[in-house]
Amino acid sequence: MTITPVRSTEARSTEARSTESQQLIADSTQELLARAEGLPELERQQLLDEVILLNAPVARSIASRYRRKGVDTDDLEQVAYLGLVKAANGYRPDASSAFLSYAVPTIRGELKRYFRDCAWVVRPPRRVQEMQGSIAAAEPELTQQLGHLPSDQETADALGTEAGEVAEAASVRGCFNTLSLDAPAAADNGARLADTVADAEVGYELVENVSTLAPAVSDLDDRDRQILALRFCGGLTQEEIGNELGVSQMQVSRLLRGILDRLRADLTKPVDQAR
């Protein structure tokens, strides 16, 4: 036996009021658009502004379907409003379809163009961008119809394309945003992602420099090695080194220059000559 849920009187009443409100907005919209036809531009624009205000909730509702894709909600709504403005200016009252039948695709198209042209961090090929936009628009309705997130094949069947193209387009969803290094690395320790990135290790460079310099320095005499140690390890000035060795600052300068020239020549010799 099949049991059909019975909706409460309050729920039916709320739905009825919502339907009446939507119909009232639709009727008012059509009336305003009809009145705007043929008026001078200033008066026409005033009536179209009223149409835009009446239907702004529709634009916000459409924009909400594109959330969590790396674009701020305010930006999405602004783009949706732009689509609504274009629809209000482009719609003709003598058309066979109602205003929303024209406005909704216009708003969606504006949002898709925004994602295609402005929201990519890494820009994939145009065909992939367009397919990703089609998937984003179709996925909510497919999920409602199927009762679960559609597979690539189910999405492809709905869009009239191949499952491989859907999979390729779905793989670029992360291209809309980047993950900040200030984002939490884990929910429990309070660390940032930046804390988990390895720092440059200067120790390896130091070991390499010592290994390279050691043979060249070993060829120097004791006094030359002492001068190098006092200057670069002890941090003494040339005057202080002269006082330590009992020579003038000028002599220390000449000695130090000669030592560095010999080291430079030794370190820059071709490998075969160095051997």
Rank of each mutant, 00 (worst) to 15 (best):
R17Y: 02
R35Y: 02
D27N: 07
L76Q: 08
E43P: 08
D261P: 08
G133S: 12
A167C: 04
R116H: 05
D157H: 15
R67S: 05
R67D: 04
Y91H: 14
N243Q: 09
R225D: 01
D199W: 07
A214R: 15
Q145S: 13
E50I: 01
T19G: 08
N55Y: 01
S171P: 05
S151T: 14
I52A: 02
L33S: 13
V71A: 07
A186H: 13
C118K: 15
F232C: 00
S151I: 08
Q132E: 13
A137Q: 12
I227L: 11
E110S: 13
V271D: 12
A87C: 05
Y81R: 12
A56P: 02
R7V: 00
A63K: 10
A136K: 08
I107V: 04
N55C: 04
A158E: 03
L256R: 14
R92A: 01
L230D: 10
P150G: 05
T161K: 11
T178E: 08
P124T: 02
L76F: 06
S248I: 04
E205C: 07
S171H: 04
A194Y: 09
Q30P: 05
I135A: 00
K112V: 15
L32D: 14
R67N: 03
F232A: 00
P40W: 10
S61W: 02
A98E: 12
L149I: 08
P5M: 13
L32Y: 12
L213A: 09
Q78G: 06
G234S: 04
R257D: 09
D49S: 06
R60H: 09
A214L: 14
Q251E: 12
D272C: 03
G234Q: 10
G83D: 05
L32V: 03
T29R: 14
L213T: 09
G38V: 00
G160D: 09
S97G: 08
S13Y: 11
I62N: 06
A56L: 05
V128N: 02
E139C: 00
Y204F: 06
E239C: 03
A169Q: 10
E240Q: 11
R35S: 04
P125R: 15
G38H: 08
V207H: 06
G38D: 08
S101N: 12
P140S: 10
I62D: 03
L159G: 06
A80D: 09
R17P: 00
G90S: 12
T29P: 13
R231N: 07
P215V: 07
A88F: 00
R254I: 06
F176G: 00
L100N: 11
A136M: 11
L82N: 03
R231Q: 09
A95N: 14
R113M: 07
Y204V: 06
R113V: 04
Y81F: 02
Q22V: 02
T73W: 03
E208P: 05
S248W: 13
Y66D: 00
Q78F: 00
R225Q: 12
R264I: 02
Q249L: 05
E244L: 00
Q46Y: 05
V122H: 02
R123A: 03
L236S: 01
R123K: 10
L76K: 11
A186R: 14
Q22Y: 09
R92H: 10
F115V: 15
R12K: 06
